[in-house]
């Protein structure tokens, strides 16, 4: 029951994000969608993932988005240009978007197909993600390499952003 409520919130909010004309509303609806997802994580018995979802995505990253939208003072988006065929065809960004959407759809279908064929031992999976201590131990032993590489990646992105911005100062 609660699953459908939270899932519904997440799905409807995500759809509205795309449907909104005012960028500010899109950002806020995305936050609502993230909070719905966090609720789903709680239902899956992993409060840590839920709280991290809110701190990192709904809290930190979306504040950044909000800042950008606020400072650019983005206006209402205009409706799509309609061609004579009655099908909406936009500029190049829209076509790239369409291709990306198709790729994601294919990926999603593949994931569903795989999920149907492989089985995971539920008890073991839950135990490995439920405790904060276990997550920490796993992260710094088994997945230490991936963890360190990700940190270097983020550092590189940060240095890159500063270097690009400094050129114009």
């Amino acid at each position: 029951m609660l699953f459908y409520v939270l899932g519904g919130i997440a799905v409807i909010a995500s759809l509205l994000v795309v449907g909104q004309r005012v960028p500010m509303y899109s950002v806020l609806l995305l936050i609502v969608s993230f909070i719905g997802l966090a609720g789903l994580y709680v239902l899956l018995d992993s409060p840590f993932a839920a709280v991290t979802q809110i701190i990192v995505y709904a809290g930190a990253i979306m504040v950044l988005f909000l800042f950008v939208v606020m400072l650019l003072n983005a206006p209402r988006e205009e409706a799509l240009v309609r061609s004579t065929l009655g099908v909406s065809i936009g500029g190049r960004p829209l076509r790239v978007g369409a291709i990306l959407a198709l790729v994601f759809l294919a990926e999603l279908l593949w994931a569903f197909w795989r999920a149907g064929r492989t089985t995971v031992d539920a008890g073991e999976a839950v135990a490995s993600v439920s405790s904060v201590r276990q997550i920490g131990v796993e992260l710094f032993t088994t997945h230490a390499f991936a963890f360190e590489v990700t940190s270097v990646l983020i550092l590189v992105a940060m240095v890159g952003a500063v270097a690009l911005a400094k050129r114009h100062l």
Binding site: I31, I55, A58, A60, V63
Partner: peptide, 12 residues
């Protein structure tokens, strides 16, 4: 962490 998460929501 819950405390932290809710505080960060207060900024909005």
């Amino acid at each position: 962490l819950v405390l932290f998460a809710i505080t960060s929501m207060g900024i909005y």
